[in-house]
Amino acid sequence: MTTPPSPDDDPAAPEPPPPWALPDTRAPAAEAPAAPPDETSPADDPEPSPTAGERPGRARTNGLAIAALVTGAVGLVLFAIAFAVAALVQIRRRGGGGRGLALGGLGASAAWLAVAAVIAVMFGDSLFSAGEAEADPRQRDGYVLSSTLKVGDCFTAQTHDPADPNVYPSPCASPHNGEVVAKATLPAGPFPGVQRLAAQAAALCKERTPDNVKKIVDDDFDARTELPKRKDWESGKRTVTCTLVYVGEDKSLTAPLSRAVITPRHEAMFEQGECLEKWDESMTPPVVDCDLPHQFQVLATYKLQGKEYPGIKKLEKMASEGCARRAADIWKGDPPPDRVSATFATPTKQQWRLGYRDVYCLITGGNNGPLKRSFVPKK
Protein backbone atom coordinates (compact mmCIF):
# COMPACT_ATOMS: atom_id res chain seq x y z
CA MET A 1 0.00 0.00 0.00
CA THR A 2 1.46 3.30 -0.99
CA THR A 3 0.93 6.67 0.51
CA PRO A 4 -0.18 9.31 -1.95
CA PRO A 5 2.38 12.14 -2.34
CA SER A 6 1.75 15.27 -0.38
CA PRO A 7 -0.03 17.87 -2.49
CA ASP A 8 2.50 20.57 -3.45
CA ASP A 9 1.88 23.88 -5.11
CA ASP A 10 1.27 23.39 -8.80
CA PRO A 11 3.86 25.51 -10.65
CA ALA A 12 1.42 25.91 -13.53
CA ALA A 13 -1.28 27.24 -11.27
CA PRO A 14 -1.99 30.97 -11.59
CA GLU A 15 -0.53 33.30 -9.00
CA PRO A 16 -3.00 33.84 -6.12
CA PRO A 17 -4.63 37.25 -6.11
CA PRO A 18 -3.02 39.78 -3.76
CA PRO A 19 -4.65 40.21 -0.35
CA TRP A 20 -7.74 42.38 -0.46
CA ALA A 21 -7.16 45.98 0.52
CA LEU A 22 -9.76 48.69 0.72
CA PRO A 23 -9.20 50.96 -2.27
CA ASP A 24 -8.33 54.57 -1.42
CA THR A 25 -9.33 56.20 -4.68
CA ARG A 26 -11.89 58.70 -3.55
CA ALA A 27 -10.96 62.15 -4.85
CA PRO A 28 -10.08 64.63 -2.15
CA ALA A 29 -12.83 66.99 -1.18
CA ALA A 30 -12.84 70.08 -3.31
CA GLU A 31 -11.27 72.99 -1.60
CA ALA A 32 -13.52 75.93 -0.91
CA PRO A 33 -12.76 78.83 -3.25
CA ALA A 34 -10.39 81.32 -1.77
CA ALA A 35 -12.15 84.29 -0.29
CA PRO A 36 -11.48 87.60 -2.05
CA PRO A 37 -8.90 89.74 -0.39
CA ASP A 38 -10.40 91.84 2.33
CA GLU A 39 -10.03 95.45 1.37
CA THR A 40 -11.05 96.68 4.75
CA SER A 41 -8.30 97.29 7.18
CA PRO A 42 -8.55 95.43 10.46
CA ALA A 43 -8.27 98.76 12.12
CA ASP A 44 -11.34 100.05 10.24
CA ASP A 45 -13.55 96.96 10.83
CA PRO A 46 -12.14 94.65 13.55
CA GLU A 47 -15.12 92.25 13.37
CA PRO A 48 -16.26 91.93 9.73
CA SER A 49 -19.62 90.24 9.18
CA PRO A 50 -20.38 87.94 6.27
CA THR A 51 -22.01 89.33 3.20
CA ALA A 52 -25.76 88.96 3.12
CA GLY A 53 -26.89 85.66 1.52
CA GLU A 54 -23.39 84.04 1.73
CA ARG A 55 -23.18 80.64 3.51
CA PRO A 56 -20.02 79.53 5.34
CA GLY A 57 -18.28 76.43 3.70
CA ARG A 58 -18.79 72.97 5.45
CA ALA A 59 -16.40 69.99 5.42
CA ARG A 60 -17.66 67.09 3.27
CA THR A 61 -18.76 63.95 5.20
CA ASN A 62 -16.57 60.94 4.46
CA GLY A 63 -18.53 58.24 2.60
CA LEU A 64 -16.67 55.38 4.28
CA ALA A 65 -17.69 56.73 7.67
CA ILE A 66 -21.33 56.56 6.60
CA ALA A 67 -20.81 52.99 5.36
CA ALA A 68 -19.20 52.07 8.69
CA LEU A 69 -22.20 53.30 10.67
CA VAL A 70 -24.72 51.55 8.41
CA THR A 71 -22.94 48.16 8.34
CA GLY A 72 -22.26 48.35 12.08
CA ALA A 73 -25.93 49.04 12.80
CA VAL A 74 -27.10 45.96 10.86
CA GLY A 75 -24.47 43.63 12.38
CA LEU A 76 -21.98 43.34 9.52
CA VAL A 77 -19.16 43.61 12.03
CA LEU A 78 -16.17 42.82 9.81
CA PHE A 79 -17.28 45.27 7.12
CA ALA A 80 -18.07 47.95 9.69
CA ILE A 81 -14.64 47.71 11.29
CA ALA A 82 -12.90 47.83 7.89
CA PHE A 83 -14.93 50.85 6.74
CA ALA A 84 -14.43 52.68 10.06
CA VAL A 85 -10.66 52.21 10.10
CA ALA A 86 -10.36 53.34 6.48
CA ALA A 87 -12.57 56.36 7.15
CA LEU A 88 -10.57 57.47 10.18
CA VAL A 89 -7.33 57.18 8.18
CA GLN A 90 -8.73 59.27 5.33
CA ILE A 91 -10.15 61.91 7.67
CA ARG A 92 -6.83 62.22 9.48
CA ARG A 93 -4.91 62.61 6.21
CA ARG A 94 -7.30 64.75 4.19
CA GLY A 95 -9.67 66.29 6.65
CA GLY A 96 -13.38 66.24 6.21
CA GLY A 97 -16.29 65.23 8.41
CA GLY A 98 -17.57 61.86 9.60
CA ARG A 99 -15.23 60.99 12.46
CA GLY A 100 -18.21 60.57 14.78
CA LEU A 101 -19.98 58.30 12.28
CA ALA A 102 -16.90 56.05 11.98
CA LEU A 103 -16.61 55.81 15.75
CA GLY A 104 -20.32 55.04 15.89
CA GLY A 105 -19.76 52.14 13.48
CA LEU A 106 -16.99 50.79 15.71
CA GLY A 107 -19.23 51.13 18.77
CA ALA A 108 -22.08 49.26 17.07
CA SER A 109 -19.66 46.48 16.06
CA ALA A 110 -18.43 46.18 19.65
CA ALA A 111 -22.02 45.90 20.84
CA TRP A 112 -22.75 43.07 18.37
CA LEU A 113 -19.60 41.21 19.49
CA ALA A 114 -20.61 41.58 23.14
CA VAL A 115 -24.06 40.14 22.39
CA ALA A 116 -22.49 37.19 20.55
CA ALA A 117 -20.19 36.51 23.50
CA VAL A 118 -23.10 36.48 25.94
CA ILE A 119 -25.08 34.08 23.75
CA ALA A 120 -22.05 31.77 23.44
CA VAL A 121 -21.67 31.63 27.22
CA MET A 122 -25.39 30.98 27.77
CA PHE A 123 -25.94 28.32 25.12
CA GLY A 124 -22.49 26.79 24.72
CA ASP A 125 -22.07 24.24 21.93
CA SER A 126 -25.79 23.86 21.26
CA LEU A 127 -25.85 26.99 19.12
CA PHE A 128 -22.55 26.81 17.28
CA SER A 129 -22.28 23.05 16.62
CA ALA A 130 -25.62 22.32 15.00
CA GLY A 131 -23.93 20.49 12.15
CA GLU A 132 -22.09 18.20 14.56
CA ALA A 133 -25.29 17.54 16.50
CA GLU A 134 -27.02 16.41 13.33
CA ALA A 135 -24.14 14.10 12.42
CA ASP A 136 -23.73 12.67 15.91
CA PRO A 137 -26.56 10.23 16.77
CA ARG A 138 -25.84 10.68 20.48
CA GLN A 139 -27.70 13.99 20.26
CA ARG A 140 -30.85 12.49 18.76
CA ASP A 141 -33.92 11.86 20.86
CA GLY A 142 -34.11 8.47 22.49
CA TYR A 143 -30.44 8.02 23.47
CA VAL A 144 -29.84 7.43 27.17
CA LEU A 145 -26.95 6.59 29.47
CA SER A 146 -26.34 2.88 29.77
CA SER A 147 -26.52 3.26 33.56
CA THR A 148 -30.26 4.03 33.28
CA LEU A 149 -30.97 0.54 31.89
CA LYS A 150 -31.54 -2.67 33.86
CA VAL A 151 -29.56 -5.90 33.68
CA GLY A 152 -30.74 -7.81 30.62
CA ASP A 153 -31.83 -4.70 28.69
CA CYS A 154 -30.59 -4.54 25.10
CA PHE A 155 -29.44 -1.49 23.17
CA THR A 156 -27.58 -0.17 20.13
CA ALA A 157 -24.28 1.60 20.79
CA GLN A 158 -21.44 3.20 18.85
CA THR A 159 -18.87 0.57 17.93
CA HIS A 160 -16.10 3.06 17.04
CA ASP A 161 -16.13 4.91 20.37
CA PRO A 162 -15.84 2.59 23.40
CA ALA A 163 -15.87 5.58 25.77
CA ASP A 164 -19.32 6.72 24.67
CA PRO A 165 -21.84 5.81 27.42
CA ASN A 166 -24.89 6.86 25.34
CA VAL A 167 -26.96 4.00 23.91
CA TYR A 168 -30.27 3.60 22.14
CA PRO A 169 -32.60 1.15 23.96
CA SER A 170 -33.79 -1.66 21.68
CA PRO A 171 -35.95 -4.75 22.22
CA CYS A 172 -33.74 -7.83 22.47
CA ALA A 173 -35.77 -9.49 19.68
CA SER A 174 -34.91 -6.62 17.29
CA PRO A 175 -31.47 -6.01 15.76
CA HIS A 176 -29.12 -4.55 18.37
CA ASN A 177 -25.47 -4.84 19.34
CA GLY A 178 -25.31 -4.50 23.12
CA GLU A 179 -26.70 -5.68 26.43
CA VAL A 180 -26.36 -4.73 30.09
CA VAL A 181 -24.86 -7.85 31.69
CA ALA A 182 -24.28 -6.71 35.27
CA LYS A 183 -24.55 -3.90 37.77
CA ALA A 184 -22.59 -3.74 40.98
CA THR A 185 -21.96 -1.24 43.76
CA LEU A 186 -18.37 -0.71 44.82
CA PRO A 187 -17.49 -0.50 48.52
CA ALA A 188 -17.71 2.85 50.27
CA GLY A 189 -14.55 4.87 50.80
CA PRO A 190 -12.63 7.84 49.39
CA PHE A 191 -12.79 8.29 45.62
CA PRO A 192 -9.98 6.00 44.33
CA GLY A 193 -9.12 8.01 41.22
CA VAL A 194 -10.13 7.34 37.63
CA GLN A 195 -7.46 4.75 36.75
CA ARG A 196 -7.87 2.67 39.90
CA LEU A 197 -11.64 2.93 39.66
CA ALA A 198 -11.54 1.68 36.05
CA ALA A 199 -9.38 -1.30 37.06
CA GLN A 200 -11.71 -2.20 39.93
CA ALA A 201 -14.75 -1.91 37.67
CA ALA A 202 -13.19 -4.04 34.91
CA ALA A 203 -12.39 -6.83 37.37
CA LEU A 204 -15.86 -6.67 38.86
CA CYS A 205 -17.55 -6.74 35.45
CA LYS A 206 -15.44 -9.70 34.33
CA GLU A 207 -16.48 -11.57 37.46
CA ARG A 208 -20.16 -10.78 36.92
CA THR A 209 -20.21 -11.63 33.18
CA PRO A 210 -22.32 -14.78 32.56
CA ASP A 211 -20.27 -17.94 32.03
CA ASN A 212 -21.90 -18.70 28.68
CA VAL A 213 -20.61 -15.35 27.35
CA LYS A 214 -17.11 -15.19 28.87
CA LYS A 215 -15.54 -17.51 26.29
CA ILE A 216 -16.44 -15.25 23.37
CA VAL A 217 -15.86 -11.83 24.91
CA ASP A 218 -12.28 -11.31 23.80
CA ASP A 219 -12.85 -11.79 20.07
CA ASP A 220 -16.45 -10.83 19.45
CA PHE A 221 -17.38 -8.33 22.16
CA ASP A 222 -16.11 -5.11 23.65
CA ALA A 223 -16.51 -5.20 27.42
CA ARG A 224 -17.44 -1.68 28.54
CA THR A 225 -18.11 -0.09 31.91
CA GLU A 226 -19.85 3.12 32.88
CA LEU A 227 -18.17 4.51 35.97
CA PRO A 228 -19.56 6.89 38.60
CA LYS A 229 -18.19 10.44 38.50
CA ARG A 230 -16.37 11.86 41.50
CA LYS A 231 -19.36 13.96 42.58
CA ASP A 232 -21.66 10.91 42.25
CA TRP A 233 -19.22 8.82 44.29
CA GLU A 234 -19.08 11.43 47.04
CA SER A 235 -22.88 11.57 47.13
CA GLY A 236 -23.08 7.79 47.65
CA LYS A 237 -23.72 6.68 44.05
CA ARG A 238 -21.04 4.04 43.45
CA THR A 239 -22.78 1.73 40.96
CA VAL A 240 -20.83 0.36 38.01
CA THR A 241 -22.73 -0.64 34.85
CA CYS A 242 -21.21 -3.52 32.85
CA THR A 243 -22.15 -3.84 29.18
CA LEU A 244 -21.07 -5.95 26.23
CA VAL A 245 -21.09 -4.51 22.70
CA TYR A 246 -20.94 -7.01 19.83
CA VAL A 247 -18.25 -6.27 17.23
CA GLY A 248 -18.25 -9.63 15.45
CA GLU A 249 -18.85 -10.39 11.81
CA ASP A 250 -22.64 -10.81 12.06
CA LYS A 251 -23.06 -7.04 12.58
CA SER A 252 -25.95 -7.34 15.06
CA LEU A 253 -27.76 -9.59 17.51
CA THR A 254 -31.43 -10.54 17.45
CA ALA A 255 -31.79 -12.31 20.80
CA PRO A 256 -30.64 -11.91 24.40
CA LEU A 257 -27.11 -13.11 25.08
CA SER A 258 -28.47 -15.99 27.13
CA ARG A 259 -30.16 -17.36 23.98
CA ALA A 260 -28.00 -15.88 21.19
CA VAL A 261 -26.22 -18.19 18.79
CA ILE A 262 -22.87 -16.52 18.07
CA THR A 263 -20.42 -18.02 15.64
CA PRO A 264 -16.95 -17.37 17.06
CA ARG A 265 -14.28 -16.10 14.74
CA HIS A 266 -11.98 -18.72 13.26
CA GLU A 267 -9.58 -20.43 15.58
CA ALA A 268 -5.83 -20.32 15.08
CA MET A 269 -4.61 -23.14 12.83
CA PHE A 270 -1.71 -24.08 15.11
CA GLU A 271 -0.94 -24.14 18.79
CA GLN A 272 2.19 -23.35 20.77
CA GLY A 273 4.86 -26.02 20.45
CA GLU A 274 3.63 -27.63 17.20
CA CYS A 275 6.28 -28.30 14.55
CA LEU A 276 5.69 -27.56 10.87
CA GLU A 277 7.46 -29.25 7.98
CA LYS A 278 7.32 -26.00 6.00
CA TRP A 279 5.29 -22.82 5.68
CA ASP A 280 3.11 -22.30 2.65
CA GLU A 281 0.70 -19.35 2.47
CA SER A 282 -1.44 -21.08 -0.15
CA MET A 283 -2.15 -24.18 1.93
CA THR A 284 -2.18 -25.45 5.49
CA PRO A 285 1.40 -26.34 6.44
CA PRO A 286 1.66 -29.96 7.61
CA VAL A 287 2.26 -30.59 11.31
CA VAL A 288 4.99 -33.19 11.97
CA ASP A 289 6.59 -34.85 14.95
CA CYS A 290 9.19 -32.49 16.39
CA ASP A 291 11.79 -35.27 16.41
CA LEU A 292 11.65 -35.31 12.61
CA PRO A 293 13.38 -32.62 10.53
CA HIS A 294 11.16 -29.55 10.23
CA GLN A 295 11.54 -25.95 9.17
CA PHE A 296 9.45 -24.17 11.81
CA GLN A 297 8.09 -24.54 15.31
CA VAL A 298 5.22 -22.43 16.68
CA LEU A 299 6.42 -20.30 19.56
CA ALA A 300 3.09 -18.55 20.20
CA THR A 301 -0.11 -17.38 18.50
CA TYR A 302 -2.17 -14.31 19.28
CA LYS A 303 -4.72 -12.00 17.67
CA LEU A 304 -4.24 -8.37 16.75
CA GLN A 305 -6.96 -5.80 17.39
CA GLY A 306 -8.35 -3.13 15.12
CA LYS A 307 -10.76 -2.77 12.25
CA GLU A 308 -8.65 -0.93 9.66
CA TYR A 309 -5.69 -2.66 8.01
CA PRO A 310 -2.61 -0.94 9.54
CA GLY A 311 -0.29 -1.37 6.56
CA ILE A 312 2.64 -3.74 6.12
CA LYS A 313 5.26 -1.77 8.07
CA LYS A 314 3.08 -1.10 11.09
CA LEU A 315 1.72 -4.65 11.02
CA GLU A 316 5.21 -6.14 11.03
CA LYS A 317 6.29 -3.86 13.88
CA MET A 318 3.26 -4.87 15.95
CA ALA A 319 3.92 -8.56 15.26
CA SER A 320 7.63 -8.29 16.08
CA GLU A 321 6.98 -6.56 19.39
CA GLY A 322 4.21 -8.99 20.33
CA CYS A 323 6.33 -12.05 19.54
CA ALA A 324 9.31 -10.68 21.48
CA ARG A 325 7.17 -10.26 24.61
CA ARG A 326 5.81 -13.78 24.31
CA ALA A 327 9.27 -15.26 23.71
CA ALA A 328 10.50 -13.61 26.90
CA ASP A 329 7.55 -15.05 28.84
CA ILE A 330 8.02 -18.57 27.45
CA TRP A 331 11.82 -18.91 27.61
CA LYS A 332 12.40 -16.50 30.51
CA GLY A 333 16.13 -16.76 31.35
CA ASP A 334 16.80 -19.84 29.19
CA PRO A 335 16.72 -18.82 25.49
CA PRO A 336 17.34 -21.40 22.73
CA PRO A 337 20.79 -21.80 21.15
CA ASP A 338 22.11 -19.33 18.61
CA ARG A 339 21.35 -21.65 15.69
CA VAL A 340 17.65 -20.92 16.22
CA SER A 341 16.28 -17.64 14.88
CA ALA A 342 12.87 -16.00 15.33
CA THR A 343 10.38 -15.00 12.66
CA PHE A 344 6.63 -14.53 12.36
CA ALA A 345 3.71 -14.78 9.95
CA THR A 346 0.98 -12.10 9.71
CA PRO A 347 -2.34 -11.92 7.86
CA THR A 348 -2.37 -10.43 4.37
CA LYS A 349 -4.45 -7.37 3.55
CA GLN A 350 -7.13 -9.56 1.98
CA GLN A 351 -7.18 -11.88 5.01
CA TRP A 352 -7.46 -8.88 7.32
CA ARG A 353 -10.54 -7.71 5.45
CA LEU A 354 -12.05 -11.18 5.94
CA GLY A 355 -11.56 -10.89 9.70
CA TYR A 356 -8.29 -12.78 10.17
CA ARG A 357 -6.09 -11.23 12.86
CA ASP A 358 -3.84 -14.18 13.80
CA VAL A 359 -0.09 -13.68 14.25
CA TYR A 360 2.13 -16.79 14.38
CA CYS A 361 5.41 -16.37 16.26
CA LEU A 362 7.78 -18.97 14.83
CA ILE A 363 11.34 -20.21 15.28
CA THR A 364 13.42 -21.65 12.47
CA GLY A 365 16.88 -23.03 11.79
CA GLY A 366 17.28 -20.73 8.79
CA ASN A 367 20.66 -21.11 7.13
CA ASN A 368 21.67 -23.64 9.78
CA GLY A 369 19.33 -26.22 8.30
CA PRO A 370 16.14 -27.82 9.59
CA LEU A 371 15.31 -28.20 13.26
CA LYS A 372 15.48 -31.73 14.65
CA ARG A 373 13.94 -31.36 18.07
CA SER A 374 11.50 -29.19 20.01
CA PHE A 375 12.61 -25.86 21.47
CA VAL A 376 9.19 -24.74 22.69
CA PRO A 377 7.09 -26.35 25.42
CA LYS A 378 3.54 -27.23 24.49
CA LYS A 379 0.63 -25.71 26.37
Rank of each mutant, 00 (worst) to 15 (best):
P336W: 11
L304G: 03
T159A: 08
G75M: 00
D334Y: 12
C172P: 06
P19D: 15
D44V: 14
V180F: 11
P42L: 03
A223Q: 10
A65F: 11
A29K: 00
R373N: 05
L244C: 05
G53E: 12
K349W: 08
T343G: 01
R325Y: 08
N368Q: 11
I363V: 14
F296T: 01
L204R: 15
C242H: 05
V376A: 00
G98D: 14
E47F: 15
T243G: 08
G273F: 03
M283P: 03
P42W: 02
V167L: 13
A202M: 13
E134Q: 13
S6R: 15
F221H: 02
Q295M: 11
I81L: 09
K150C: 01
T209C: 12
A67P: 00
L88S: 00
V261L: 08
W20F: 15
S174G: 05
A35T: 11
R373G: 04
L354W: 14
Q200S: 10
P337M: 00
L299N: 00
E47I: 01
M318C: 00
A21F: 09
I312Q: 02
C154Q: 14
L64E: 12
A35M: 06
A133P: 03
R259E: 15
A182G: 11
S170P: 07
G124T: 05
P23N: 13
L69E: 13
R94L: 12
C290P: 07
Y309F: 15
V85T: 11
L145W: 09
E267P: 02
T343N: 07
P4T: 11
A27D: 13
V287Y: 04
T156G: 05
A188Y: 08
P210E: 05
L354S: 13
P377D: 07
G75T: 00
R326W: 09
D329H: 06
A65Q: 08
W20Q: 12
S147M: 02
N62F: 02
S126W: 06
G311Q: 09
A117E: 04
A52I: 10
K314R: 09
D222V: 05
D164S: 14
M269C: 03
W352E: 04
A87Q: 06
Q295N: 11
S341C: 03
D164Y: 07
P19G: 10
L354R: 10
D222M: 12
T364G: 06
Q200E: 14
E316R: 15
